[in-house]
Write a protein that binds this DNA or RNA. Structure first.
Lengths: 235, 235
DNA sequence: AAGTGGTCTAGACCACGGA
DNA sequence: CCGTGGTCTAGACCACTTC
């Protein structure tokens, strides 16, 4: 691979690998070619391929098993690897996510701006509920502009039970990169109070997050509202 | 450097560099020797030194400036690099931290367990307030066991205005490694309400964090309570 | 035994910043 | 100009997993 762009070789290799992933060349949990083979393919040395793969491993796009190979990582929601830690406990329990509903809505001013769409643009709204064993701890709302995912159908969203990440990967070849989460405390509205069986005005933790494609374009906005009570939320 | 331990060379180099830092060989913002010089010193190649420094840069212990050198990073509180993002704004403002008070208290059951001390063990309690330009947004409480830092004096804590991180580094040679933060929403107590000029029972964001030494021993426990209102907290 | 990731080297060249 | 970080190579060896 010639050094054309004013860009390190290993960055170019990283992009080539991403492109190959997006074209479905290797499926989730499938092994990639060995570093040596990739080096031959891209016309670089094994060390350069390694550095590119290092980056993708750090981004959770790939994972490695020594002596075996390099694999395509599954697509996971950030909330799924988060924990609810009970007060006076060192380690918490993973959250379970369950699909609730999917509807088509129109973008408010604020949402339109986030997605760089016009006001009123059609959006998919997916709702899910968050549990730890034995208790409802939160609800989540996921929003994505219809215009950015033309092939997407409500049927598919339901089929995959609101796992938007995996859906976008499988149907649109889009891998999401998450921005940092943002946190707020807010008082439970009547709707939230009923859903989470708490009093109105009880304090709730709001976790919002924007996800983008590799180019930085905003794709998905998600808002989770959590009843923390005895628990702490550990991202 | 011979490969004695069952450990990569670059990990050993990383530890050597940390040891040198802890012995005060290089001060904050001072340049380290060049990668080539360090390579000679440790008897390894430049690439190996580089990989060791890469790790320390990723850990925010060092920083680099191309064409100039590698420097010792200042010691910064996690809260100082956090932002309060106004609703309907893409980017937030850094928080300012101001010293309030420092007293000596006795460990409750829970705190004693965290620090692996006996109940009632003496602790330092440092209080600080958190502002964004023009507004009080939170208060922070920092706790550390007296027994772990025998040389520490209240005078010094006051002198450094509650910058515990820098204090421990300068006086005790201890660099803190932070665990993941944990988040809760809670209702403002009377004390918090007065300090932050909100109503009692208003929802507040609680951010707790445990910091350890390189060996994993718990050193510092901190609890911040934030009025999020119009803002979101971005770590 | 063969193939994989994981480490390391010596040497090379480039890009940047300061003198 | 020089010295710094930043990149890249070719080749070597090790540690691990699988067959």
């Amino acid at each position: 691979m010639a050094k054309l762009a004013a860009q390190p070789l290993y960055q170019q290799v990283r992009k080539e690998v991403i492109a190959a992933l997006q074209q479905g060349e290797w499926q989730v949990d499938e092994t990639l070619p060995s570093e040596i083979d990739l080096a031959r393919r891209f016309g670089v040395s094994q060390g350069t391929v390694r550095k590119a793969l290092d980056a993708l491993v750090a981004e959770n796009v790939l994972y490695r098993r020594q002596g075996v190979g390099t694999f395509v990582a599954g697509v996971r929601d950030a909330l799924l690897s988060a924990c609810m830690v009970p007060a006076s406990a060192k380690v918490g329990e993973r959250m379970q996510v369950e699909f609730l509903s999917c509807v088509r809505i129109h973008a408010s001013e604020g949402l339109a701006e986030i997605f760089d769409q016009r006001r009123g643009a059609p959006l998919w709204q997916v709702r899910r509920q968050l549990r730890v064993p034995g208790e409802m701890v939160g609800v989540e709302e996921i929003l994505l502009p219809e215009a950015l995912f033309p092939g997407l159908e409500m049927r598919r969203i339901r089929e995959l039970k609101g796992n938007v990440r995996e859906l976008l990967w499988r149907d649109c070849g889009a891998r999401l990169v998450d921005d940092a989460a943002r946190y707020r405390a807010l008082a439970a509205t009547q709707v939230e109070a009923r859903a989470l069986s708490v009093e109105v005005n009880e304090p709730l933790l709001q976790v919002t997050r924007l996800s983008r494609d590799y180019a930085g374009k905003s794709l998905v906005w998600s808002v989770a509202v959590l009843k923390t009570g005895q628990f702490s939320f550990e991202p």
